[in-house]
Amino acid sequence: MADSVLIEGLVVETVVGVYDWEREVTQNLVVDLEMAWDNTVPGRSDDVADALDYAAVSARVESCLQTLRPKLLEHGAEVLARTLREEFGIKWLRLAIRKPGAVPAAQAVGVRIERGEKTETGVR
Rank of each mutant, 00 (worst) to 15 (best):
V57Q: 03
Q66Y: 01
K91P: 04
K71W: 02
V25R: 15
K71Y: 07
W92D: 08
L6D: 10
L33Q: 04
A106C: 15
V31Y: 10
A108G: 05
P104G: 12
L84I: 04
V61R: 01
E78L: 12
V109A: 14
A96Y: 01
F88N: 02
I97L: 14
E74P: 00
Q66N: 03
A49E: 13
V48W: 04
V111H: 04
G122W: 06
E120C: 08
A2C: 09
E74N: 04
E86F: 04
R82K: 12
V41S: 10
V79Q: 04
T40K: 11
A36R: 01
G76L: 06
V79L: 07
W37L: 10
R60W: 06
R82I: 08
L52W: 01
I7N: 01
R112N: 03
G89S: 11
Y19G: 00
A59T: 05
E86I: 03
V79Y: 00
K118R: 14
A102L: 12
V61S: 05
G101Y: 08
L65M: 06
K118E: 06
E86Q: 14
L52H: 03
I90P: 01
V41L: 14
W37C: 13
M1N: 07
P70W: 07
S45Y: 07
V18Q: 08
Q66S: 10
R60P: 00
Y54V: 03
R82A: 14
E78I: 01
D32Y: 11
A55F: 08
R98N: 11
E114R: 11
E24R: 15
E62H: 04
D50W: 07
G9A: 13
L6A: 14
L33I: 11
V30A: 11
L95Q: 03
T83G: 01
E62C: 10
I7L: 15
P70S: 10
C64G: 00
P42R: 03
E120W: 05
T14H: 10
R115M: 14
A51C: 13
G76I: 04
K118Y: 01
Q66V: 06
A2R: 12
K91D: 14
